[in-house]
Nucleic acid binder design. Sequence first.
DNA 1: GCTTGACCTTGCCATTGTGGGAACCTTCAG
DNA 2: CTGAAGGTTCCCACAATGGCAAGGTCAAGC
Lengths: 130, 130
Amino acid sequence: MNIGQAARASGVSAKMIRYYERVGLLSPAGRTRAGYRVFSDDDVHALRFVRRARDLGFPVADIVQLLSLWRDRDRESGKVKELARAHLTELRAKMQELQAMAATLERLVTSCDGDERPSCPIIDELADDA
Amino acid sequence: MNIGQAARASGVSAKMIRYYERVGLLSPAGRTRAGYRVFSDDDVHALRFVRRARDLGFPVADIVQLLSLWRDRDRESGKVKELARAHLTELRAKMQELQAMAATLERLVTSCDGDERPSCPIIDELADDA
DNA sequence: GCTTGACCTTGCCATTGTGGGAACCTTCAG
DNA sequence: CTGAAGGTTCCCACAATGGCAAGGTCAAGC
């Protein structure tokens, strides 16, 4: 099948399939004589794998590892778990950053009257000379 | 003062000061005859404002608005509050995305033995044929 | 006055993953 | 044969930040 069909079958856009190939996440697809990429069912399977990993927020670099572990019949599940755990730690760190911002912002939003008058604790805190 | 001093005084890197000027967040700084940018205390004050807003995760486009509201003696605090509230909504949305990923990932990590054997629910779920 | 080091200038490259569009070629159906 | 749909590559853009390189400037010390 060609790239459009593979895209529809996998849920990965044609654009991204080309990108993944370019950055080495996927090995170069075969080509017809005219230069069209050709995909097998296995390729589509791999694309779905990639999409699911992306949906979990794994960066492309991690997915390279995950794909290789997936294909390794002798993998140690410990390695997969380590990757996942490290990523989970990343996610939690980002969540905490956002959480901290949100907490401050919430406090400010709550304390601001938000009417037609200029007095505004939000602006005041941003402009704080301290 | 020159850009390095302004950077140290504001906590915004020289690189970012130039960037903010280039993208129109800050009006172009004055220059010495030699072409060095010159900053006033007011400029530094604005830079600190920008840094605090960035620390709260406001995108540059929002900060353009916030700066203009800060300078507007007749601002309506309602407009500030609206900006802040919209950003807070964004933050919460991102947190929820991350939260969903983290929840799935946590379930998977917990269910994986993570030893030297290949069996791995994490890989299984990513590769799921369903 | 000259050298040296610190600091300034601009400009380009990289990041991360995704989309948009142009210019051009291929395939297939009518 | 022609036209539509879809493939190809390449460039651009996003957001915000850092790094590096080549070159100009300034101030201090000799």
